[in-house]
Write a protein that binds this DNA or RNA. Structure first.
Length: 419
DNA sequence: TCTGGGGTCCTTTTGCCC
DNA sequence: TCTGGGGCAAAAGGACCC
């Protein structure tokens, strides 16, 4: 769910008979994805305001139906505020497993249309359909087929932007929402682009928007007619040049299927602020295990461990250390995370969140030979792989360090074997 | 009105080596 | 021997995205 919504000056062309020559980039964006998927389980709630979000006291809105958005509810809004804005809305807990399942279905459907699919998140992807035109028709027709199939096969609606570049396609899908299709013909790109506010540019958030406003730049057209050197001074070398190009509708990025991950991490906000280092250490252990389990599942190892600490006043710091050898062993990551945390020398600071992240990822296979020479680490790896297998069979958390076992917890219930 | 959790990318600072 | 500075990698912070 995008945080911003813009309406278009009516230059674009709807599905009718658009001039889609050369418009081979599709951006498909599911409408209110998390809310829509949750409604599949609650058909009685269709047509009413529904908010999906963390139930805890400190949650934010993950997604909301358009009926709830009419009351000003939007993604990333604190839940407390959302409830006040729309008191009669039904609040649902997120069901991440279900979202992942529908997402896999949708992505498989895309793969059926073209092999050039670049997922951006669970609920959106770019498709390069240049190779599918002969088989399936013009880009606008392929876009409509895609929308129909998503609705028929997955029961949720999506919006599609069709253009000659990624950025304009993404902009177009946003303008088409909800449940719409918008083709931006190549020669109309600037006419669509220039009247839009600067915040519509991909990469311009609240801060950059504020900066641009200070310099009197309010529309994308204003940016296009500002010397690129001025933009570089104001926004930085890379950022300034990039925005200038986008403002002229130029975006050389191509649709790249399967991008490898750069980092894997886990973080958690405490239900209440914490100043007890024992609790923080225990949380670091849990997070290190969560992150390394995903690392091992992806057959990756990482060389840099970083921690994130957010204080009660929301200021956030990070600390990182690069190891001599890449690892996927939670013990190593945990030890490094604790050492980084202890190195902060905090006394009774009240903490709101801690996180652990592993960066500098590489293929675990490339690491094998060295690990064989390192017996102690190899032993821990084997032990942790055994835990991964047990977790897969008996459920996450069925095997864990004694420090994470709550003595008051009832003994776990093991599901019956399925063979 | 009080701010999640998963990420990516860019910039600046710092330390090290030559 | 002291100093300056270029080049590089790591570290830290911050903005942004969904």
């Amino acid at each position: 769910m995008s945080r911003r919504q813009y309406t278009r000056a009516d230059h674009g062309t709807d599905a009718g008979a658009p001039d889609d020559a050369g418009c081979t980039v599709l951006h498909v964006d599911m409408d209110a994805f998390y809310a829509s998927v949750s409604l599949l389980e609650h058909p009685d709630l269709v047509g009413s305001p529904v908010i999906v979000g963390g139930g805890g006291t400190r949650g934010v809105v993950l997604s909301a139906t358009y009926e709830a958005r009419a009351f000003g509810v939007h993604a990333a809004m604190p839940m407390a505020r959302a409830r006040r804005a729309c008191p009669h809305a039904v609040v649902l807990e997120p069901d991440h497993a279900r979202y992942a399942q529908v997402s896999r279905g949708v992505m498989a459907l895309f793969a059926d249309i073209t092999p050039l699919v670049e997922p951006l998140s669970l609920d959106e992807a770019f498709l390069d359909v240049s190779g599918a035109v002969r088989r399936l028709g013009r880009p606008a027709e392929i876009a409509q087929q895609t929308r129909d199939r998503v609705a028929d096969e997955q029961g949720v609606s999506c919006s599609v932007g069709v253009a000659s570049t990624k950025f304009v396609a993404k902009l177009a899908s946003g303008l088409a929402k909800p449940d719409g299709l918008l083709v931006v013909p190549h020669e109309q790109t600037l006419a669509v682009l220039h009247p839009l506010p600067v915040g519509a540019l991909w990469g311009v958030g609240d801060r950059t928007e504020e900066t641009l406003h200070r310099f009197g730049l309010r529309t994308i057209g204003d940016i296009a007619h500002t010397p690129v050197d001025t933009l570089r001074r104001v926004l930085g070398e890379a950022g300034g040049a990039h925005l200038f190009e986008l403002a002229w509708g130029r975006d050389p990025r191509s649709v790249v299927p399967v991008q490898s991950e750069r980092s894997i991490g886990a973080e958690e906000t405490f239900a209440r602020d914490v100043d007890d280092h024992d609790i923080v250490h225990r949380e670091l252990l849990r997070l290190a295990q969560r992150a390394t389990a995903r690392l091992r599942a992806a057959r990756l190892v990482g060389r840099t461990v970083s921690i994130k600490v957010r204080f009660a006043d929301f200021t956030t710091i990070t600390r990182s250390r690069t190891l001599t050898e890449a690892t996927d062993v939670s013990r190593d990551v945990y030890a490094t995370a604790c050492s980084l945390f202890d190195g902060l020398g905090l006394q009774r600071a009240r903490l709101r969140l801690v996180g652990v992240r592993i960066e500098g990822l590489s293929d675990a296979g490339a690491q094998q030979r060295q690990l064989l020479l390192d017996e102690p680490t190899h032993g821990w790896r084997d032990a942790e792989r055994a835990v991964d297998r047990a977790s897969a069979r008996f459920g996450a958390g069925s095997v864990r360090p004694a420090t994470l076992v709550d003595p008051d917890e009832p003994p776990p219930h093991h599901p019956p074997r399925t063979r």
